[in-house]
Design a protein around this nucleic acid. Structure first.
Lengths: 338, 338
DNA sequence: CTGAAAGCGCTTACAG
DNA sequence: CTGAAAGCGCTTACAG
């Protein structure tokens, strides 16, 4: 391994000077700087980041803790964060928290042991108190999909209410009044907020809400399938399904297809998230586009802005994001008899 | 930050002794060991991994370089590697190489700068020479989905020929003789090997192969859709489609659906990989199950076996894997008139 | 069984 | 503008 001393020797300067040119430090003569730089290049020297991290008491890396890398929604987040961080020459550690408080805490601690400069956390299971606790320990804790008042400037979240309101209204504008709502059975904020948005839209249009029309299940393909199956058994009349997310929507569509009910001819369906499947399904799903890229950039910028050269004004970074309607093929406009 | 010196002072021993109990080192009296351990626990001391890595000239982390975290197939690989590594208390760095030789090399170098102990690489764009070059620089370079003779013991790959042969034969056994092959247009080994397997199966059953029936496209949903569209224009007769992978298969199924051709009634379709979509589509896709979990475990074991306590015999780790047929709903058995 | 000392490869006051 | 020196938090021969 070639070290800073080797360069110093070869260049006939002190290690301190080499270090200064490496870090674009001040007070190095132009000539000497060029000379040293040439030797660095010639010998292909690469600084040992571990040593640097030790003296600086901090590495040039950030950590990311998400529930599962495997989940396509999360994978996209991780991908966008990593890609943006890499552009700015910062290394990213990605860890899974598996939706378990203990495991998330463990992941954070491991990251801390590795002296990351910042952690971007996506947690739906930690309490506000847990997170506030960690925000005091972690050098720079940034949160995605979470809004905690006291650390608001480190939070990036989506306006679930407005988004759910909008997609429901989209259906109402298409003439639908008989709804089914397929909700997630996870005990977190998002399902509640989205359901509130749904209720809000119905109310705004004077549509009565019968709680019989909502079913809860795991927010995945199977869950959507199960939930709609339970609805069907109730023998209700409906023309539109609002699902908690795309996966549930797609699960419902598939179940309906199996029993001979066509989407969108017989029933319209909308999802939420706009995951990759949404545009590859039959029919292509109308849904709310989750601004993952924008959120990832905002969060990563906040995570790294303190240790990179950046001309981004913090004040310009948005914290609350509103998804947009992507209207594809799963919604039919009703022509009313009345 | 609480350091080893703080513990030493509190326990009235030398830092060396603390270090020894931390590392389960030899030659520490049981009493003293217990005493020191208690102080460590009480104070909640966590060793600084950066410092340790510096003196050991190597961290307890491994690096993973994959084309894209975002790709569900790759995300699964990354997930399985990370999860297995975490079980053994080793931290994982995940980087994207973006299918670009320069970027992959960059990712590897960055990982090296961070003193990872091993790198698991999934590269389809580097030449054998490039990889052999890196295998000399990287402490322990492990390859997935690649088989390079001279570093065979570090390689883990799939028998594409056998797998493709098997799934094609599955179709032949169901009575199909008129095929279409939708291939990837990537200039890498896999498409060639799988196509050879397809040809091999036809030959074994004396079925004539007209090269007119193969079309090339990007190995994604759109590509499958494009490719089958080109086939349709040729006005060929066929009852079965063998696709390079699930995404192309699904793209083809969707396009056929749009023009009113039903799978599997009118045409049977098989994929390859068994990605998550394959079991959530309409119809559920018959495909070859890629043993990602098993391969990830084998690769990770090889990557970390040298620095963890492990009773796994290296000789017991398989290197070549054969996918299995998963028969779902996209293949129809033909009852022949003849 | 235990401790004092050297050293891993850097950075950064400090002094000049 | 430049260098000698100290130190980041550990581990590990070496000596006893």
């Amino acid at each position: 391994m070639i070290t800073i001393k080797d360069i110093a020797k070869a260049a006939n300067v002190s290690p301190a000077t080499v270090s200064r040119v490496l870090n674009n430090g001040p007070k190095v003569g132009a000539n000497k700087r060029a000379h040293v730089q040439k030797i660095i290049d010639d010998l292909g020297y690469r600084p040992n980041l571990t040593a640097r991290a030790l003296v600086k008491q901090s590495s040039g890396s950030i950590g990311v803790v998400i529930p599962e890398i495997f989940d396509p929604f999360m994978a996209k987040f991780a991908h966008e964060i990593e890609s943006y961080a890499t552009q700015h020459d910062v290394q990213t550690f990605i860890s899974s928290g598996h939706n378990d408080v203990e495991k998330e805490a463990m992941a954070i601690n491991k990251l801390l042991d590795n002296n990351v400069r910042s952690i971007i956390l996506h947690s739906k299971v930690m309490s506000d108190e847990d997170i506030i606790h960690f925000s005091k320990i972690v050098p720079n804790l940034v949160l995605i999909n979470r809004n905690i008042e006291v650390i608001k400037e480190k939070c990036f979240w989506v306006d679930n209410y407005a988004a759910s309101f909008a997609i429901t209204e989209h259906l109402i504008n298409a003439g639908h009044t008989k709804f089914v709502y397929l909700n997630s059975n996870y005990d977190i904020e998002d399902p509640k907020e989205r359901f509130e948005g749904f209720k809000g839209a119905l109310k705004a249009h004077n549509i009565h809400l019968d709680f019989n029309i909502v079913e809860y299940a795991e927010p995945f393909h199977e869950g959507g399938s199960d939930a709609i199956q339970r609805i069907i058994k109730k023998d209700l009349t409906f023309t539109a399904i609002v699902a908690y997310n795309d996966q549930m929507a797609l699960g419902a569509i598939n179940y309906l297809h199996e029993i001979g009910i066509n989407t969108p001819k017989a029933v319209s369906v909308v999802g939420f998230d706009d995951v990759i499947y949404a545009s590859n399904s039959i029919p292509k799903l109308s849904t709310m586009h989750y601004p993952i890229t924008e959120m990832a950039i905002a969060a990563t910028t906040t995570a790294i802005s303190e240790f990179i050269d950046s001309d981004i004004e913090k004040a310009d970074i948005p914290h609350c994001f509103t998804p947009e309607i992507i209207d594809r093929d799963s919604v039919k406009t009703l022509t009313l008899a009345k």
